[in-house]
């Protein structure tokens, strides 16, 4: 379910992930953040990310988040504004079709 509120001690909030994020999402986001905040350049933030990652990748933490009652719904506009920042990825079949050799005609 969507994130309704967050706090500094919430590992999912620290990683900027929704409550229903999968283990793969958690790992992917962790690596992305660690690349941005390395232990040399930003040790405090790095430690925070590291702790949040350890907590969020615990299956029981994930399960607890998945099974807790949903929070308040987001206003539709807020939700869509968030989605606007997250453009969709191209389906694999469509992506691969972009490599078809064109002979002046359309690619269909």
């Amino acid at each position: 379910m969507s994130e309704s509120h967050s706090s500094a001690s919430d590992p999912f909030a620290v990683l900027g992930l929704p409550a229903n994020a999968s283990l793969a999402d958690v790992r992917s986001r962790y690596l992305e953040l660690v690349r941005r905040h390395s232990p040399e350049s930003d040790p405090e933030r790095f430690q925070q990310i590291q702790q949040a990652y350890n907590a969020a990748s615990d299956p029981m933490t994930i399960a607890r988040r998945l099974t807790q009652p949903p929070g308040d719904p987001l206003p539709w506009k807020t939700l869509l504004d968030q989605e606007k920042q997250n453009p969709p990825r191209v389906p694999t079949e469509v992506l691969l079709s972009l490599g078809n050799q064109t002979t002046g005609s359309r690619n269909e």
Binding site: M1, S2, N20, P69, P70, G71, D72, P73, L74, W76, L79, Q82, E83, N86, P88
Partner: peptide
């Protein structure tokens, strides 16, 4: 897929409340 999932989940949260 992400937009559809978010809209559906938000709709479900609304009806839950």
């Amino acid at each position: 897929p992400h937009l559809v999932q978010s809209l559906c989940e938000n709709a479900l949260i609304r009806i839950y409340h």
